[in-house]
Design a protein around this nucleic acid. Structure first.
Lengths: 149, 149
DNA sequence: CTGTATGCAAAGCATTTGCAGAAAC
DNA sequence: GTTTCTGCAAATGCTTTGCATACAG
């Protein structure tokens, strides 16, 4: 997906949404933090550095909007808050995370095999799959080494 | 896993937990509803039919306890509340759900391929996997048919 | 101009916690 | 008998909402 401003501006225009300064600033946060999984509070804290009067409610409303536009992907790591990442691919797919049970670190991984699995499941269950989320829990390399010490 | 009472009683005793009437009643709810994914509120409502003075806090505390004992499995379908199901297998594995985006129905499916995928990921990423959760979002057969009408 | 977006504060939910009384073992 | 457990109510943490004002198109 293309994340230059003119492209995004069009996406807003198409749906009659206004591209306000607040929304631009929040968008920029995600463009600058492609590899992170930011919570609403994270975004609010970052955003306040350049515009300290943006309300938390606006952040929430914008995150919801950007998810609806498929610019962001909402993810849930089970830590009691929703997190968001920029949706790099055009299809809402490929969100796979390795979550370390010791340090909580989240590691991304690319997949190809899930597609095959999807097809098999679709065949066996008459379920039409449009998206999947996969989380693996375990221990990252660093925590494994610490454990062995 | 064996879910008869004497077995469970032992499990409590081993850890110096008391098998109170409230805990027995809550356990029974899950034994009677093996195929369901019950929220704390669901459990509270069912439990109140036979003992209307069990507090919601006790339900929450018991669900946490039973999860810790690996009698229950806590799952999250992203609907804002935690759900619990009895842990049929001895290892905390094989929780795979097809979630219908139209009606919200949750369909279980058994897997074998995930084990292979786990092994490949472990090799490629030096991540030691102990558990996984997989959710597929899509449309169940019934909703597909309604859609076509 | 007009309807949408914002900030603030208050409300809403699921869940957790403090505490005094109750009850397993 | 003691320690653990319970019920209640209050507190918490994330998120949503109502409303008057501000502003993008």
């Amino acid at each position: 997906m293309n994340f230059d401003l003119s492209n995004l501006r069009q996406k807003f225009k198409d749906r009659d949404y206004k591209l306000t300064p607040q929304r631009q600033i929040i968008l920029q946060v995600f463009i600058d933090n492609r590899d992170k999984h930011l919570s609403a509070e994270d975004v609010h804290n970052i955003v306040r550095q350049q515009a300290n009067d943006i309300g938390l409610a606006t952040v929430y409303r914008t995150l919801e909007l950007l998810s609806e536009l498929e610019i962001l992907q909402k993810i849930d790591f089970g830590d009691g808050r929703s997190r968001y990442e920029i949706n790099e691919t055009s299809s809402p797919h490929h969100h796979h995370h390795l979550i370390c049970l010791t340090c909580g670190r989240v590691i991304e991984f690319a997949d190809d095999l899930m597609e095959d699995l999807e097809n098999i499941i679709a065949e066996n269950s008459n379920f039409s799959i449009v998206d999947h989320q996969v989380k693996f829990y375990g221990y990252c390399q660093e925590c494994q080494m610490k454990r062995d010490e």
